[in-house]
């Protein structure tokens, strides 16, 4: 069930990226898209009724910690991608005075 919802998120992000011509909205789409994969990884680690993988004295079922760690890295990557994208958009705004993709493509052809 959660997987299905996750897939909706995945598709949603992709659709936003493809459909929107506003560059900032595209970045938002990209973020949604990335988040869906992150959630997918976290879902993988979850076992039935498992608790967070925090070391304590008594033993119990705990989630697989590896995907969490991986996603931590992926989130860092995602943040840097987003920030780079936003920085580029700022520069585009200065150059073209617009952040609409269609208008930029129309420009100087």
């Amino acid at each position: 069930m959660i997987y299905a919802l996750n897939m909706i998120l995945f598709t949603l992000g992709l659709v936003i990226m493809i459909r929107e011509s506003n560059l900032v909205k595209k970045v938002i789409g990209l973020n949604i898209f990335q988040s869906s994969i992150f959630i997918f990884f976290i879902l993988l680690s979850k076992l039935n009724d498992s608790l967070p993988p925090i070391l304590e004295d008594y033993s119990y079922d705990y989630s697989n910690p590896l995907p969490h760690v991986l996603i931590l890295t992926a989130i860092v990557v995602s943040i840097s991608t987003t920030s780079l994208a936003l920085a580029l958009i700022l520069k585009i705004k200065k150059q073209f005075n617009t952040i609409d993709e269609d208008e930029i493509s129309k420009d100087d052809q």
């Binding site: 995945f10 992709l14 990226m17 560059l23 595209k26 990209l30 898209f33 990335q34 994969i37 997918f40 990884f41 993988l44 995907p67 992926a74 990557v77 991608t81 780079l84 994208a85 580029l88 958009i89 520069k91 585009i92 150059q95 073209f96 930029i104 100087d108």
Partner: peptide, 25 residues
């Protein structure tokens, strides 16, 4: 258009990378 080209590559490249990540998952 350099910046714009970079941004477009960023979008496409990120989608590609996320696809790879998904496959890895």
């Amino acid at each position: 258009k350099s910046t714009f080209a970079a941004l477009q590559y960023l979008f496409i490249g990120s989608i590609g990378a996320i696809f790879v990540l998904f496959a890895i998952g």
